[in-house]
Structures are given as C-alpha cells and as structure tokens.
Amino acid sequence: MDLYRSVRAVTTASGDGAVDWDGVREAAKAGTRPGSLDLSPAERDGYAADVRAARDRLQTVSGTEFDVPDRLTVQNRHHWIDANVDTFRRVMEPIEAEVKTLFPNVSRVANTGTMAFTLGFLARHVLGQYDPLLLADDPEEHGLYFVHPNIRRVADELDVEYERFRRWIVFHEVAHAAEFGAAPWLPGYLESRLESGVRTLSRGGLDREAFLDLDAAMTAVEGYAELLMDRAFDEEYADLREKVDERRDTGGGPVGRLVRRLLGLGLKRRQYERGTRFFETVADECGLAAAGVVWERPENLPTDAELDRPELWIRRVDPC
C-alpha cells in the first residue's frame, strides 16, 4: 500500500471530465493492499468444482438452464478494482456530460478522491460478484468474480472452515447467474431504469419511479438468489449467515459502520431480507416454480407495495 502515491493520484487529477478515471484506478489500487493470490492447485480446482456443483444444483432446483459466464476469475483486490472502475465510469458518464461547475479542477480532485475511496473500500470487503456488466458495449458479456484474499480473511475472522465458506459464496454468486439466465431481458430492464434515473439526476431532478423500479428489481434479484441458495446449497449454512450478519453489524468499528451507511451498503441487506420474505411466502403458498414466474417477463416483477404484501402479487400474476 502506497498512501503517498494514492494521494498524489487524486491531487493531480486531470482531464476534461468531472472525474479522472485513470487517477481513480491508480489511487484506489495504491491505497489498497492487493492481497495474496498464491493459490495451490487444490484451491484452484476447488473454485472450479464449487462453480460446477453450484451450476448443476441450481439448475436442478430452479428448473432453469443457464450458462456460467466466460469471465470467471479468482481475483485479488487490485483485479477487482480494474474490473469495476469501468462500470463506475459507464454509470457516471451521463452525469459527467451534464455537470458544469465554477471550479472544475477543484471539483475533479474531489470527485476523483470520492470514487477512489469508494472503490478501495469495496475492494477490501467484496467476497464474490456476479457482474452483468450493465451498459457495456457487449450486452452478452457477463462476469463472475471471487476476491480470494477477502474470502480467506473473512473465513479466518469468522472462525469457519475456509472450503465450506468459499463454497457458500460461490453458490450465492452462481444463483445470480441463474436469475439472469432465466431472464435475458433483465440486464436491459435494469439499464433502462438506471439510465433514466441517472439522466434525470444529472439535470437536477429526481426520477422517483425509475429508482423505485430499480430498487424493487434488485430486491427481487437478492431475494430470489437467497431462496435458491436455501434450496440448493448442499450443507446447512444458518451459522454462516448468522456470523456474516453479525460481522456486518459490528465489524469495522464506528468508522466502518459510518462508511457502510454512506455507501448505502445497508440497502443491499434490506433488499435481501425484504426479497427473501417475499419469495419465501410465494414459494410456501404456490411452490418454487411459482416464484420463478417473476423472471418470465418484466411485468411480472413485484412492485414496491407487492414486496411487502406478496398476496397482492399472487393475485395479480396468478402463478399458482
């Protein structure tokens, strides 16, 4: 970790845009230890075996055929930053195109520092990621990433068996691949809602409907993945969930908890809890196949109100 180089990359931010993305990349990596990626042959085989097992089990449980993304990589933290800085850039492009400030150089330094801090913080905490690569040039390209140093570190901190914890993380991320495999329309839907919301923000407005739709869709994504995990994972994992949730609540001290709130990371937990309750109710009432009806077409996504009252969604969609 080279904090001097990180600060220098931010303070010397240049270019014409509101963010110096090359500076973001350099600063985030300089301020973040990459972590070891010295995997034994057994560990490499273990990741591959876990992905195959997750794919096969999830296909059987969900009744959906899907492909695991070609971009399947075991990463260190710097690799994760490289993979995600372009996503941040794509999302921010509409705002950068619209935003004009009286002091562009000062603003660019502040924006570059904020983005670098965000990516560095996330790189130190992300365990696995299914990346639909929204707004990318190739709509067919998706990614599946596992941040090995973080998985190793968290397994040690939680005092759980590393191989079991790794397998649990793999199953969760492959469950997201199953969702997007069942709903080829989903990336385009998310992109349209994201673009509409960001475009309106860049003009000083707020497209509440777009952000509500986006939140409801992502809540469904998190909840259905948790439902599939519950049915497909080949071991009991309540202890893993309990320890991970406890770590989120207490880990990192007051500064870490503040950063998580500022970055909206509590929103993702709320999404998975709310989505899980919705899909468990649907599955209990009508069966697992009925829960999968959500992915048949965009109109079948639950609304914000239906997420809290699944009976309304069941009445409207009639999946039973």
Rank of each mutant, 00 (worst) to 15 (best):
E173K: 00
V174D: 07
V174L: 13
V174N: 00
V174H: 01
V174F: 01
H176T: 03
H176W: 08
A177I: 05
A177Q: 01
A178H: 06
E179K: 10
E179Y: 07
F180S: 11
G181T: 05
A182K: 02
A182R: 15
A183V: 04
P184L: 12
P184V: 14
P184R: 12
W185G: 03
L186M: 15
L186W: 10
G188D: 08
Y189C: 01
Y189P: 08
L190H: 08
E191G: 05
E191V: 05
S192W: 06
R193H: 06
L194H: 05
E195Y: 05
S196V: 00
S196T: 07
S196M: 07
V198N: 02
R199V: 05
R199D: 06
R199C: 00
L201K: 00
S202P: 08
S202F: 06
S202C: 05
S202E: 04
R203L: 14
R203K: 15
G204V: 12
G205W: 04
L206S: 10
D207L: 05
E209L: 11
E209A: 15
F211M: 09
F211E: 02
F211W: 09
F211K: 02
D213I: 00
D213S: 08
L214C: 00
D215C: 09
D215S: 10
A217P: 13
A217S: 15
A217K: 06
M218V: 13
M218Q: 11
M218E: 13
M218W: 02
T219D: 12
T219N: 03
A220G: 08
E222A: 00
E222T: 00
E222Q: 13
G223D: 02
Y224L: 13
Y224H: 09
Y224Q: 14
Y224A: 01
A225P: 02
A225K: 01
E226M: 09
L227Q: 07
L227Y: 08
L228D: 00
L228A: 03
L228Q: 01
M229R: 13
D230T: 12
D230M: 13
R231F: 10
A232W: 02
F233K: 03
F233H: 11
F233G: 00
D234N: 10
E235C: 03
E236W: 08
E236F: 05
Y237G: 01
Y237V: 06
A238E: 15
A238L: 13
L240V: 08
R241W: 12
R241H: 07
R241E: 09
K243L: 10
V244I: 13
V244S: 01
V244F: 10
V244P: 00
V244A: 06
D245R: 12
E246D: 04
E246Y: 05
R247T: 10
R247M: 15
R248I: 08
R248A: 14
R248H: 11
D249Y: 11
D249I: 14
